Simulated assay, not measured.
Amino acid sequence: MRTAVARLAATRIAHPPLLIGLAVLILAEALLPVLGLLMPIRLLLRGWLAAFAVWSCIPIGSMTLLLIHRLTGGEWGQAVAPVLRPAAMLTPLVALALLPVLLGLRDVYPWAADPSTIPTDVGRWYLNEVAFVIRASMALAGWSLLAVIFAAGPGTQLLAGLGLAFFGLTISLVAVDWYLSLEPHYVATAFAAMIAVQQLLAALAFAVLISGPTIDGKVAGDLGGLLIATLLGVVYLELMTFIVAWYGDLPDKSAWFIKRADSGWVAVLIVAILFGAVLPFSMLLIKSIRDSQRGLRIAGSLILFGTTLHIAWLLVPAFEAQGAIVAVACAVLAILVLASLLIGSALQRVLEASHAE
């Protein structure tokens, strides 16, 4: 870890894209209050949250995969490490990217704008602005530390195990805070697990999409199997959530699904299922495709497309002015991706040099 940090500070080649990437993100955040004079700030922040939900899957999922590989081993982890390490090192950037949401909680979350919309004891002891920020800070600080340690070096298996336990605890809290509390009367016990598996799926799909020629044969087959497992995990958790809600026939749960059942959002979900789940799953069942880098890349790109649509289906129907929010989210996502590519390219050079020693 010290070697990687020292190289990052000393390597001139790494500085320009790193600083430019940070400047792009900071400038975008600084412009939000200015743009808020032209359009409602709540639309900007809600679009920012939707984009953040999609983009943050890859850094957080990459960090988690590094921890998993440290415990389990396997050639698959070594093959995609050049992608997972710099992607995981972007986890501190996740904290910076969430800052506008934390500063504008009352413009994003109904319970923050009007605490009377939730039970008094829930607001007092759990779902309030101070507790929200504390939980987010705790999770992001811990994830960032784990990401830096395991991206810069192997870390220990004990720390990896403890880190996964910490991740399991904190994702159970912040996934509900950041996303599910947009509609605080809806409760789904599997939601946090679904978000965690979705992050793993997105990180794997990203890794196979941009990895080099080291992915072939058995390694490609292993990665294809991991994609199948995580893809089935997301679909299973989403389906079971729907079945439990349908079987329970409770008004709050029904209202949540009714918002997502109009013709437009049903079409989004169908496209996400067909192109982001059914098609890549069918491809990965064929051994010749699963064992080829080209096949994995096609499947990975489809999965990332489906992930984007799935998260949009989960979050955007909670808001009004959905068209404007989608437009803002697309613009913000482009900014986050640009900043990530710039910073990630700098980090990749430093980490490759460090691990080559």
Rank of each mutant, 00 (worst) to 15 (best):
N128I: 00
A327M: 12
V266A: 14
L93M: 15
L285A: 01
G36Y: 12
L31H: 14
M39K: 06
A255L: 08
L201S: 12
S301Y: 10
R46V: 10
L65T: 10
L32M: 08
V187E: 05
S211P: 08
D216L: 12
R7D: 04
L31I: 10
G323N: 10
A152R: 02
A318N: 13
I335C: 08
L31A: 15
F281S: 13
V108G: 10
L173G: 01
L145E: 05
K253G: 13
G153F: 02
I298G: 13
F166N: 04
L71C: 06
G344S: 13
A267G: 10
V266M: 14
A202W: 08
L19H: 07
M138G: 13
P86H: 09
L341K: 07
G36I: 13
Y179C: 00
V187D: 07
G163W: 01
A28P: 04
W256S: 08
E320P: 00
Q199A: 12
L341A: 14
A188P: 01
W55S: 05
G300V: 14
L140D: 03
M194H: 07
T214S: 15
G264T: 14
T241I: 03
F242Y: 12
Q322K: 07
G36H: 13
T11Q: 11
V326H: 10
Y179V: 05
V174F: 05
A30P: 08
L302D: 03
L351H: 07
T11V: 08
R2A: 05
I215H: 02
L25Y: 06
Y236H: 06
V328D: 03
L250I: 09
V268M: 12
P119Y: 00
I171T: 09
G224H: 03
K287W: 04
V24D: 09
A141C: 15
A139N: 13
W76H: 10
E183P: 00
G168Q: 07
A14N: 07
R349V: 12
L314M: 11
A188Q: 12
R85Y: 10
R42P: 02
W178S: 03
G73Q: 06
A353V: 04
L304E: 05
I210D: 11
L342S: 10
E129K: 01
S301W: 10
A203K: 00
W313P: 05
L96T: 01
M89A: 14
W48I: 04
V266F: 11
I286L: 10
R12K: 13
M89V: 08
L146H: 09
W125F: 14
A14I: 09
A267I: 02
T120G: 00
W143G: 09
G161W: 09
A9F: 09
I118K: 06
A255K: 12
I60W: 04
V108M: 11
D262H: 13
Q322M: 03
L32I: 15
M138P: 01
R124L: 00
